[in-house]
Design a protein around this nucleic acid. Structure first.
Lengths: 229, 229
DNA sequence: GAATTCTGTCACAGAAATATCACAGGTCTG
DNA sequence: CAGACCTGTGATATTTCTGTGACAGAATTC
């Protein structure tokens, strides 16, 4: 998996490269718009991580230009990095073809979760029959409903457990309101918070090292659950 | 859930319709390319099941044309039906925007599984996250309900604290009458000045350097509170 | 048809969040 | 100066949320 990192802050770029390399990616770096496009043309990548606040070059909005340029040539997923909380920025970025955005400062863990999630999504449309979710050292095959952690023997999940985990992994690193989860597991009609609690409990028992102190499925009081936060 | 079935083999189309109807779908049938596009325009569907080997009409490759035409107009998931196991066919179909394919003969059960899987996927992708509030050296993520000051470790806020802070940061630099704040935190019905006082107190403890002499949340005698004044 | 697995429901306990009460000090006003 | 009012503070009830265990019917498998 090749990742193109575009950021004029070399420290941050290096940190990103380090993090992604540890996750098995092959990071390519660029520090300005020309460099980014050059790298991009040299070799196809699987994902682009783009800082919108590139200071060098033609202008403040350089990042958006790169986003647009890349999108015109390819459908590779693009993640924007931004410090600004300006709604307009986000809307603009998504309008120009970005697929997701992450605010600085971010935890490397969260970024990796987003990256994996996006790659999965983009690769699903081209290779539908072998959807396989991977996150750190766990792996999940929704077709077989088989969950594997590290080198431990695979665990079979039930139908509902599988749907819940798939939804979690597809939206890793985010807080998911209970209603959304319920809608996606049971559909808009069925389901209740009580059923969700029980399902989460059963899933935790199967995938967590210590269900009492879960690593993967965290609860956010009054809102819902989050995976890998 | 509406499904558009496009197949010139009426027996097979009926079987598909029967199967899907039993699964709770509302099947719409078309037997050739013009009929398919007409149906498609008449009413939006949730999934398209498309036989690539339509014999009638302009040519052998009719199915692909429909696939392309639909994909140009909509992102509705498309499943291709094919008897050929020719790799090239599959690649072509996926290249034209199909999301999955099933070989004939297939078990109705398998098809339904694929259909459900695709619908699930297409409806699962959650909209990317929302706002992040920044002010000087503090940052607040209302989604995670995480408050960060400088490089200190993040502080988790409760539901109400989060709503209050969000309202404050949204209206930073202004004097906010107590009634307005209460309306925004508890809604027009609930809430009282006493509850607001307590909430302000708890929030101050979490975000102020010195809660006794607050920097951020100031009180304006007899009126209400102001953030960052 | 029997056995097993899966799923929904209930009951309960501990924790967290929130509401309520009581009081002290300050400010303003008559 | 006395009293009303406002604000901050501490302590304490009450509610809500979450995890847990147990159990019965449904679904599935054998």
């Amino acid at each position: 998996m090749k990742a193109l990192i575009v950021d004029d802050d070399r420290t941050l770029a290096d940190l990103l490269a380090f993090t992604l390399r540890r996750e098995g990616f092959e990071p390519h770096l660029a520090f300005d718009a020309p460099g980014a496009m050059k790298q991009f043309h040299k070799e196809p990548v699987d994902i682009v991580i783009l800082d919108v606040n590139l200071s060098g070059g033609a202008g403040m909005e350089n990042g958006f230009d790169i986003c647009q340029a890349i999108r015109l040539e390819s459908s590779v997923p693009i993640i924007l990095l931004t410090v600004r909380d300006d709604e307009a920025d986000i809307v603009k970025g998504l309008g120009l073809g970005a697929d997701d955005y992450v605010h600085k400062p971010f935890s490397p863990r969260q970024l990796v979760a987003r990256v994996n999630s996006l790659i999965r999504r983009s690769s699903m449309s081209t290779a539908p029959q072998e959807a396989l979710y991977t996150c750190q050292d766990i792996q999940f095959d929704p077709n077989m409903r088989e969950f594997v952690k590290g080198d431990q023997p695979p665990v079979l999940l039930t139908r509902l457990e599988s749907r819940l985990l798939e939804y979690f992994m597809l939206n890793a690193g985010q807080v998911l309101p209970s209603e959304n989860i319920i809608d996606n597991v049971w559909g808009p009609e069925g389901g209740s918070t009580e059923m969700l609690r029980q399902l989460v409990r059963r899933l935790r028992i199967k995938i967590e090292e210590d269900p009492q102190d879960p690593d993967w499925i965290k609860n956010l009081g009054g809102v819902g659950y989050g995976f890998n936060i």
